[in-house]
Design a protein around this nucleic acid. Structure first.
Lengths: 213, 213, 213, 213
DNA sequence: CATGAATGAGACTTCATTCAT
DNA sequence: CATGAATGAAGTCTCATTCAT
């Protein structure tokens, strides 16, 4: 019985994966507006079956988002637990965030919605909160690292941690917006690579012409 | 005749204002998703009357957005044309942007949608483009000023203008996101005032601890 | 007072003419579906003013139709009361009907609706009946003449008058349908002229190959 | 699988039939103006369900029309492929057309709309074109037979085929208009039967009194 | 008399969700 | 477990008609 349960549990998870995978493609591509019909069609399952595995559209949407975050968190963990010096770890985190988002542009674009809170009128606010929470959890990876930087004297003592975390985060996402919209170049390489690198330097070095160095 | 026409034109504009004002409150509050019914109810007019003044929901939405931009542009022009030194003008622009958005939080939140491009599936793309265009027009105010700063030697010659404009813009909006979400304090004053001021300084001074000054 | 009344009556009629003239152009062009708004705009009057002169859209529609019939009736009367022999009168009536309709194609097309009775769901049935009655009244001109033809021995005694009237009427309108649809040629002349003439002859002569004459 | 698909296909067709049948009754009765609500009510289904089977009102309308044509075409084919002499075949075609239309008066009335072209402003022009095309396809049955008649010497060589086809067609529909409107008698029998028969003879024999035979 | 303004009623269409098999 | 079928609720928009000035 237990064995069978485990087996069926596994089977159930496989189904869920099929479904969420279809949902992912469509949600990332076209936003929350895709119809459940479309998702069912893509998953080659009946609409009713979707509801067997996911209580409603929102739950499915959240699941699809989580898939995107899972990949990102992996990168963050990698950067965080590497044996590099703190300064390099922070830099790696910034650049690997950018890199991941460039590889998953559609996911990136979707996350941007959550800064705009009107989602609550389309999505049930519960679902929106979960996604927002996930975003914040990831931002925290950065916040922690900056705190560490202050503690160990690498960064200015008087820095407002929250403010600076936001600056970093928003700079990255802002440039990503441009990069993602830039159809002229394969944005994961070349010109944009430099821009991201230099944006990081600017934030770290200061941007004002410096009388002396 | 001309007199009467002018009069009726005026009257018509007053009506439009009543409608757009109702629309503003609802759109800013709940996003594009509000129904025309709701707007009509708030304006205490019949739905059909709305359609007398605005061709469709999108047109009304755009009008509501424009109201928000009008106020912002005023502030920008003021800052731009003041007789202050460039450095101060730029700072004023940044801070008055923040200030305006804190006073018009709901409007602010709505503008954030346009960075997330899936809007085109809800709004007619024409309408979305108009709003996006308006945002870019405002960003240009900042870009111009930074360009000037580079030309006159105030800012580093090797600065990527677009990138830095984005950094500024996104830093401001990112902090605003936090401030707006922060229900604990009246965010237009006190703590947040300092944070915004210092965020600006950080961006200008560099954020890394500086060995010498 | 009587004078003034007369005067105002006249004035009123002038207005009505302005309105009906606008209505005519639009109804004939686009059918019953034109909106009262459009008509008012074309008449350069306010919508409310139309309702001052015509109780509702249907009444206005009927009035517009009557204008078209008036011209046709004139032709019919002319043909009927001319001093020509009966055979020629009948022929003239047929050809002048065709001629008038070719000159007033739009009016012609509109009259065709009344053979299709679903109009009652769009138009108030009262209005439809009036127009239908007017059509029948005109058909009667032809019927009378055919009756006369039978009486004086010109036409077969055993002819079913109603049936043949219909045949004549429908042959004419059927060909008119084709002619009006034929954009290749100026249908009021040349080829079509011949077709109409010969259609009349066919009906009169019989169409079967005749062994002897 | 194939079995099941076939089965469901069949089931689906049955449903479509239920819907189109309701639509037919209403469309034929009251014209295109009936609301989708009404049709749904008559079919005892929800409005949304209709849209499951028919993409929109027009598609449903066209389907309803096609039902009417299907029956007519059967009759035409029968007449055309019978082993009778040509003269009789043509006559049968004429009379079976009349007969069918008298049995399906409402359908008949509806087809008459398509001669009046303003339909395009109510129906999507695509739908109108389909129906018009179907009408012409049926007219062609007659045209072909007349052509044959000319070729084999039965009919006058100098006959304008299009014109005469129209005459036949329009004579039939014209009389049908009268018959259908004639509420006094059961029009499918008796008096009208004679009228139709004689109308055909008149067209074939010539209608003018013939000096000699 | 003339009209600008307002509207009630209704049209078509979409979609997340449920239920019976 | 899987699904085909059904639907309620909601959305945007149109238009003939009325009313207050």
């Amino acid at each position: 019985m237990t064995y069978l349960q485990a087996r069926s549990e596994k089977e159930k998870n496989r189904r869920k994966k099929v479904i969420v995978s279809a949902a992912k493609q469509l949600f990332y591509d076209k936003g929350y507006g895709v119809s459940v019909d479309e998702i069912a069609a893509k998953a080659k399952l009946s609409k009713a079956t979707l509801y067997l595995y996911y209580k409603n559209k929102d739950e499915l949407y959240v699941a699809a988002m989580m898939e995107g975050f899972a990949g990102l968190e992996e990168r963050f963990k990698e950067a965080k637990h590497s044996e590099k010096p703190l300064e390099e770890k922070l830099r790696n985190m910034y650049l690997s965030f950018v890199d991941y988002m460039l590889l998953n542009r559609k996911f990136f674009r979707i996350t941007q919605h959550y800064l705009a809170e009107d989602f609550d009128t389309r999505i049930s606010s519960g679902a929106a909160d979960i996604v927002r929470g996930e975003i914040l959890r990831h931002v925290d990876y950065v916040r922690e690292m900056i705190n560490e930087g202050i503690d160990c004297g690498l960064l200015r003592q008087d820095l407002d941690v929250n403010a600076f975390t936001t600056i970093l985060w928003r700079t990255a996402t802002g440039l990503l917006d441009l990069a993602v919209a830039d159809k002229s170049s394969n944005s994961s390489t070349g010109r944009w690579g430099e821009i991201f690198a230099s944006s990081y330097s600017v934030l770290m070095d200061g941007i004002r012409t410096q009388k002396e160095k």
